[in-house]
Simulated scan of single mutants.
Amino acid sequence: MAQLHCYVPDDIADLFRKKAEKARLSTSKYLALLVKKETSEKWPDHYFDLVGSWEGEPLQRPESLDYEKREGLE
């Protein structure tokens, strides 16, 4: 497994440690989770489950405005 080293300001490191602790993970595992999330090219699990689930008032599209007329390309 590869090891990555980085330098961050002390205040950022403190915030990072607190977030890792809140997630009940070591800083190494928490960082690995963030890197994996940021480098993944797939959609998160259940991302599309919300499509069509709106239960409020029907959404209304505002009336379209006229487009400006421009000169054509020569």
Rank of each mutant, 00 (worst) to 15 (best):
M1R: 06
M1T: 04
A2C: 00
A2I: 04
L4Y: 11
L4F: 07
L4A: 06
H5D: 01
H5P: 00
H5S: 14
H5G: 04
H5A: 12
C6F: 15
V8K: 02
P9H: 05
D10P: 02
D11L: 06
D11I: 07
D11T: 10
A13K: 15
D14N: 09
D14L: 11
D14R: 14
L15D: 15
L15M: 10
L15P: 00
L15N: 13
L15F: 03
F16C: 05
R17F: 02
R17W: 02
R17P: 00
K19Q: 13
K19V: 00
A20N: 09
A20V: 08
K22A: 14
A23P: 03
A23M: 10
R24F: 02
R24E: 15
R24I: 02
L25Q: 15
L25K: 14
L25H: 03
S26W: 04
T27L: 09
T27G: 08
S28W: 00
K29V: 05
Y30F: 15
Y30D: 05
L31Y: 00
L31C: 10
A32G: 03
A32S: 12
L33F: 06
L33M: 12
L34R: 07
L34Y: 02
L34P: 01
K37L: 10
K37Q: 12
E38D: 10
E38S: 12
E41R: 13
E41D: 12
E41T: 14
K42H: 13
K42Y: 07
K42W: 01
K42N: 11
K42C: 07
W43D: 07
P44T: 04
D45Q: 13
D45N: 09
D45I: 11
H46L: 10
H46Y: 11
H46N: 15
Y47N: 04
Y47H: 15
F48W: 12
L50E: 10
L50S: 14
L50C: 11
V51Y: 09
V51Q: 09
V51S: 04
G52F: 03
G52K: 03
G52Q: 05
G52P: 03
S53P: 00
S53Q: 15
W54V: 02
E55W: 01
E55P: 00
G56F: 05
G56W: 03
G56H: 07
E57H: 06
E57D: 13
P58T: 07
P58F: 03
P58G: 04
L59H: 06
L59F: 12
Q60L: 10
R61I: 15
R61T: 13
P62Y: 06
P62F: 09
P62M: 05
E63V: 10
E63D: 07
E63W: 01
S64L: 12
L65N: 04
D66R: 11
D66E: 12
Y67V: 01
Y67G: 04
E68P: 01
K69D: 11
K69Y: 03
K69H: 04
K69V: 13
K69S: 08
R70Y: 06
E71T: 06
G72T: 05
G72S: 08
G72E: 08
L73K: 09
E74R: 08
E74L: 08
